[in-house]
Design a binder for these strands. Structure first.
Length: 948
RNA sequence: GCCCGGGUGGCGGAAUUGGUAGACGCGCUGGAUUCAAAAUCCAGUUCCUUCGGGAGUGCGGGUUCGAUUCCCGCCCCGGGUACCA
């Protein structure tokens, strides 16, 4: 030991000695100086552009991408970088494996929080976005990511959203041709209409139109424009929104709490509004089918499948007594048609007002008002409250001509299917509950259940009470009914999707302006040279007094004298194609050149949260397929492999205030009092113990707090929650980096648990990883000074290293980084014990560790005089010859319970093993007076003796 | 409600996918070192136990020589649910 010769003679000189040792630590290698080393390598990487990618390379390409962050005002907490660390490790691994790696980063910066903040403070969202992104960048840089920052952009950069707007225009100028299963330019549709009208047209549309060529050509410009909107992929139509009259704006479900606006607590109602939408439903089948060819988790694919919600059944119509109109319904159970005892319409259904009889007018009107006050989510979730109202009208059963009452009920949603259902209470639970509640008849048509007790929803059984279907199996009846309906002209087989067209317009300021102007009411797109259409200045970020969106406040919001569109694009617009922009981030003449998109192609590995399963991930697939159809890119899925990282949760701390007092009682004593739990900042705690004086200083309201202690301490109760500033349970990565270094943060985040799982953050655990790194460093500095031996390494050491290499390689492919880190710890512990110091053993370990702890690895690599940067050295592969075992310590079980161990050579056959086990004295001891009934031997695994 | 995850010591988690449950780390306990503390090192640490054992992977069943792992039925927690990102 370096300090072994120094002896402390008396207490006075000892203080001096302590100071001396600290100075010594600083000046030699004994302690790993993370501040110095992190800084050294981070600036070197930045200087040399170590992570900048280039598309012309003879190496194979590999594209690693993170779901880019929304830069919130709170800055990053330790939960945010989890996915970035994982992707960084993988990108570095791929680089060491000889790939040309693209790993960029940017910001998804449009969105509500910045707008809300702007409304509150009057500060321009651009300004706060600027501040927030700068802070994010600083925090990200601290962690030592191997990111290509030369490609950085924000979705709010006009140079970026210019191309978001351009893609919108391409969507506007396109339609979907089902006869070839592709998007097509609108000019082809116009040519078709001119030549043949709608004859032979198989296009995705809002409403099925029948037009002759003459009818089309005789239309005026605005009629033609209106007609084309029926087909365009970006189009305008009426759709339902949450309208808050007091705020004069549309609200997200997220902004509504218990039916009232979160801001101000005003009532919210459902309202129809003219809105820009995207015809994503045209792509439903391809979005479904494409899932079979991408490497995403089954759960995620399943979520998308359910969201798309393809169901097969029949579409049929009911005549209405004394009306010419018909009610169209979609059903997945046409076999149960004879069991229809009523028809239910969504309260918003367009026929409701026409059908309602005078006697029912008042009742229907007030029910509609009640239904409008409920959000769609409430209506779906609440299956216990049953409500509805009879319209007074009757529908005629298409097969029996029997009259069935027409009801409205809020369990039927206007946005799903046709907004009307044929109710078969005997075989559908929701219909059953409705029928029971309103005492409507229930007619059984499939045998097998007990309809007095509950609906029989099973899709199999024999048909009864169903005329010509009687005796058939339900699945056969289904086919038979559809054929019959087609014959009589009352229906046909149909496929229905739950997926709805995506509403694209937002009544907001902080989004991309939609590049549309209105020429005498006709929507027209801006020419390319007018892009980007920049966000205008406004006096306030609020709607106008007459309820128009904030952009309507802008002066001269017009193009060549024509008014511009005032809604903006949703958050998902910019994030639907950003992965393409990273391939060619500074292109001024195209969203990205074909050359670069052809080279980088899909994202090979995409990492992000599961909360984007149906939003972002579906829209990005949709836009990719569209751009593929239009030949702008040559692949039709954006993300080949996708990993969902879990959340890092915070462990919140609570103090317990005795109700109505300013006295706080320690957690163990709360049962004796009536208390309220209050969040307290976790930084005020040491373990679970509260620093009461720090608490008093924390906030004015606690200045005069008094405490009831237990064992002289004030203990807080703890709870795992989402990590969030408002819960005072956040940990800032900067603090960890400062105290332990970037590599410790990186490794600890990975060590916490499986990447895909949620797990709570516990700062105490850092010392484990930190200890590992010191130990690892010490292998190279056995007596405080760097030293490496050149001779051959011990056999045991080589075995330890090669099993570590093997494990890490396996884990790398499964993204199982937590187990890699324990493998590193195990190897380091063993090598420490073996006092291993040979290059043969230690150098590969540095190469292996480089993706996880790049700063430490670079420093050691330099000391080892490795060639170039460790970031491009090869990644080690294990050699089996070091791992071969000759014997196995068998567990010997009796009836499944392990009773003793038996060390045996692995070369033995089952018979040999059986003979040895039978003759072992411990076996007869275990057997007692029982007989061996069977012996199960799995060579290399276990021995189990069944006795009895 | 519906859809998708998850549940293993005091805590985060591991377990070759049916074969010794609790690797690795934290915490805790004891010891060494120290005037003392930090750091470091060593030992122990699922629970119960009459020290022979017994129980044990959310709960209740089942399949199997053997189940954390497979099957059936529940309970609890997290995410999504179409204008949060």
């Amino acid at each position: 030991m370096f300090f072994g010769t120094h002896r402390c003679e008396n207490s006075k000189s000892c203080a001096a000695f302590t100071n001396f040792t600290r100075v010594q630590h600083f000046f030699n290698d004994m302690e790993y100086n993370h501040r110095k080393i992190d800084q050294k390598w981070q600036s070197k990487w930045a200087q040399e552009g170590t992570y900048d990618a280039s598309y012309n390379s003879d190496k194979p390409k590999f594209y690693v991408l993170d779901m880019f962050p929304y830069p919130s005002g709170a800055g990053l907490h330790v939960g945010h970088p989890l996915g970035y660390i994982a992707s960084d490790i993988y990108a570095r691994y791929k680089r060491q494996k000889g790939f040309n790696v693209l790993h960029p980063m940017g910001y998804d910066a449009f969105g509500l929080p910045a707008e809300q903040y702007a409304i509150q403070t009057g500060q321009h969202p651009e300004k706060t976005t600027e501040i927030n992104t700068a802070r994010y960048r600083e925090q990200l840089d601290n962690i030592g990511f191997g990111l290509d920052w030369s490609r950085e952009f924000k979705t709010t950069d006009p140079n970026y959203y210019k191309w978001t707007q351009w893609i919108f225009i391409q969507l506007f100028e396109a339609w979907y041709d089902h006869s070839i299963g592709k998007s097509q330019p609108i000019s082809k549709l116009i040519a078709h209409l001119e030549a043949r009208g709608t004859e032979g047209l198989n296009a995705e549309c809002t409403e099925e139109l029948v037009l002759s060529a003459e009818q089309w050509t005789s239309m005026n410009e605005s009629q033609q424009a209106e007609t084309l909107l029926n087909y365009r992929l970006a189009y305008r139509s009426q759709s339902n929104v949450n309208w808050c009259p007091e705020l004069g704006t549309v609200l997200a479900n997220d902004e509504i709490k218990d039916g009232l606006s979160e801001r101000g607590g005003h009532p919210v109602t459902q309202k129809k509004m003219m809105q820009w939408s995207m015809r994503i439903t045209a792509f439903a089948d391809r979005l479904l089918e494409g899932l079979d060819h991408i490497d995403w988790s089954n759960s995620l694919k399943e979520t998308q499948r359910n969201w798309i919600g393809k169901s097969q059944g029949a579409s049929l119509v009911f005549d209405i007594k004394d009306h010419t109109a018909q009610i169209e319904v979609f059903t997945t159970r046409p076999d149960t048609l004879f069991g229809v005892t009523f028809v239910t319409l969504a309260p918003e259904h367009e026929l409701v007002d026409i059908l309602t009889t005078t006697g029912q007018l008042e009742a229907i009107k007030s029910y509609k008002a009640i239904a409008a006050a409920r959000s769609e989510r409430d209506r779906m979730a609440d299956t216990k409250t049953i409500s509805g109202c009879f319209t007074g009208a009757y529908a005629l059963h298409p097969l029996t001509q029997k009259q069935v009452p027409i009801w409205i009920g809020d369990y039927v949603l206007a946005s799903y299917g046709t907004g009307a259902v044929m109710a078969v209470p005997a075989h559908d639970s929701r219909d059953y509950a409705f029928a029971k509640h309103f005492d409507l008849p229930i007619q059984e048509v499939v045998s097998g259940g007990d309809i007095n007790q509950e609906a029989f929803d099973a899709k199999s059984g024999k048909m009864i009470n169903s005329d010509f279907l009687n005796g058939m199996e339900a699945s056969v009846a289904k086919v038979s009914v559809i054929a019959h309906l087609e014959n009589i002209g009352y229906g046909k087989g149909a496929t229905q999707y739950k997926l709805r067209d995506a509403v694209f317009g937002r009544q907001r300021y902080w989004g991309e302006p939609i590049p549309i102007y209105y020429d005498h009411g006709v929507a027209k797109t801006l020419p390319l040279d007018a892009l980007p259409l920049k966000l205008p200045e406004v006096d306030k970020y609020l709607p106008t007094l007459d309820g128009k969106p904030p952009l309507a406040r802008a002066k001269h919001w017009e193009y060549k004298g024509h008014p511009l569109e005032t809604t903006t694009m949703p958050g998902w617009a910019g994030s639907s194609w950003y992965f393409l922009r990273f391939m060619d981030a500074h292109n001024e003449t195209a969203f990205a050149s074909k050359l670069t998109t052809d080279y980088w192609k899909q994202v090979d590995v995409y990492i992000g949260g599961a909360e984007h399963a149906t939003g972002h991930l579906l829209y990005a697939r949709f836009w990719t397929k569209f751009l593929f159809d239009m030949n702008f890119i040559s692949f039709d899925e954006p993300f080949k492999k996708l990993i969902n990282q879990g959340m890092i949760q915070g462990i919140s701390a609570f103090v317990h205030r005795i109700n109505g007092t300013n006295t706080y009682v320690s957690a163990g004593l709360i049962e004796q009092h009536e208390t309220q739990a209050i969040h307290v900042d976790v930084s005020l705690l040491q373990g679970n113990e509260l620093d009461t004086s720090a608490f008093k200083n924390w906030r004015k309201e606690y200045e005069h707090a008094t405490f009831i202690l237990e064992d002289g301490k004030y203990l807080c109760s703890r709870e795992v929650e989402k990590m969030s500033k408002s819960k005072f349970n956040v940990t800032n990565p900067d603090d960890i980096v400062d105290k332990y270094g970037a590599d410790v943060l990186r490794m600890y985040e990975m060590f916490l648990g499986p990447l895909e799982q949620s797990k709570p953050w516990n700062t105490q655990g850092l010392s484990g990883v930190s200890g590992f790194q010191r130990k690892f460093w010490k292998l190279f500095h056995p007596s405080g000074i760097f030293k490496i031996s050149e001779g051959p390494a011990d056999k045991k050491a080589l075995k330890a290293i090669h099993s570590c290499i093997k494990k890490v390689n396996e884990d790398m492919n499964n993204f199982s980084f937590n187990t890699s880190i324990s493998a590193f710890m195990i190897a380091t512990n063993e090598l420490t014990e073996l006092k291993t110091n040979e290059r043969e053993a230690l150098q590969p370990l540095v190469q292996l560790l480089a993706p996880f702890a790049p700063h430490l690895a670079e420093e050691l690599w330099e000391k080892l005089s490795g060639e170039g940067s460790v970031t491009v050295c090869s990644f080690p592969e294990h050699e089996e010859k070091y791992l071969i075992e000759s014997s196995k310590n068998y567990p010997v079980s009796f009836n499944g319970k392990v009773r003793f161990q038996l060390e045996l050579p692995l070369s033995l056959t089952s018979e040999d093993i059986e003979n040895i086990v039978r003759s072992d004295p411990r076996t007869s001891e275990q057997l007692g007076d029982k007989q061996v009934r069977k012996i199960i031997i799995v060579p290399g695994r276990i021995i189990n003796i069944v006795m009895g």
